[in-house]
């Protein structure tokens, strides 16, 4: 997917005033329908964030638009009457003052479609209102500490998740699959040594929070979170007790993970599994397929606050 696709989503189509968005969309839809067959819409995705982070999101959404998404892209600025571009299934607002974010979303969401908000940072004061307007709120701040402190409150209003959590889906599944094996499960119940390596300390905190909340660790367990600048967000995870260990390590090509279990009295087992598509579009696509409240995430965030 080229950067041009994202650019097209952000700036292509007719430039209209905010009040004319719906009629412009209708015209655009009529023009397009002469050339393309109809498509069922499945969700409205609202992306809000500072301009540099919005371009990246637009590129990801352009990959999902064929899956029946209606996209609303809102970049922050200081214009009370921001520039608006509309094309068949996209509305982009450039330079909206953050305090008007909720007003814009309220006007642009469709009651007939689920609305997911992908929040890429900004003033956290807007989040409570956004949560009330959305069916799913996907957090994606560069530094999540402030917004994670609000998750309890937001989760009372809508289903909340975080793209960092989405990136951990496969890592979590791989660790869980070890625990499907009775002898590993029996040994691992006593494991208290957790080491996570990677460039994203907050992702490591979240993973540690998930294990701590699920395995009911007390405060004596102190995860060893090793930040490695320039590495992938998570590069390796090891859980053990000093002599026995479960390890997950990203392979050199970064598309696979090598998993290994070293348990006393058993032959070591290892395998290589795919990490699947970890691109932004795939991660957002995963979030859109889930409609339920994510209690495991909420518990993990609460536990992650304990880890520095």
């Amino acid at each position: 997917m080229s950067e041009q696709s994202g650019e097209r989503l952000l700036h292509a189509g007719a430039e209209v005033s905010f009040a004319d968005i719906e009629s412009a969309l209708r015209r655009s839809s009529n023009d397009e329908s002469k050339h393309v067959s109809g498509m069922a819409l499945t969700a409205t995705v609202v992306v809000a964030g500072p301009p540099p982070r919005l371009a990246e999101a637009a590129q990801a959404l352009s990959e999902l638009i064929d899956a029946g998404l209606r996209a609303v892209l809102i970049s922050y600025g200081d214009n009370p009457s921001p520039r608006v571009h509309v094309s068949r299934q996209t509305v982009s607002l450039e330079g909206l003052r953050p305090e008007y974010l909720n007003n814009a979303v309220a006007a642009l969401r469709l009651s007939s479609l689920p609305t997911a908000v992908w929040w890429r940072g900004g003033q956290v004061e807007a989040l409570t209102g956004l949560a009330a307007l959305s069916d799913r709120l996907v957090l994606d701040a560069e530094d999540p500490r402030e917004v994670w402190s609000l998750v309890d409150n937001l989760a009372e209003r809508t289903a909340v998740s975080d793209l960092r959590w989405t990136r951990l889906t496969r890592w979590r599944a791989l660790m869980a699959q070890f625990f499907d094996i009775a002898d590993i499960r029996a040994a691992a119940a006593a494991f208290r040594v957790l080491r996570i390596e990677g460039s994203d300390r907050h992702a490591a905190r979240l993973y540690a929070g998930w294990l701590a909340s699920t395995l009911h660790w007390d405060k004596s367990v102190v995860p060893d979170l090793r930040e490695i600048p320039g590495a992938p967000p998570i590069e390796a995870i090891a859980l053990g007790d000093g002599s026995q260990e479960l390890t997950l390590r990203l392979a050199d090509n970064h598309t696979c993970v090598e998993t290994a279990a070293r348990i006393n009295g058993r032959a070591p087992t290892s395998r290589i599994v795919s990490m699947g598509n970890q691109g932004l579009a795939a991660l957002v696509g995963e979030e859109l397929r889930i409609r339920a409240r994510d209690l495991a995430f909420e518990r993990a965030v609460a536990a992650a606050k304990e880890f520095k």
Binding site: T169, R170, R172, A173, M175, A176, Q177, F179, D180, I181, A182, R185, L211, T214, L215, E286, I290, D294, L295, A296, F297
Partner: peptide
């Protein structure tokens, strides 16, 4: 049973 299966997004996997 396996506590880590709780809330996993990927569907459950079989045992060995």
């Amino acid at each position: 049973s396996n506590p880590l299966q709780d809330g996993l997004r990927l569907e459950p996997t079989p045992g060995p």
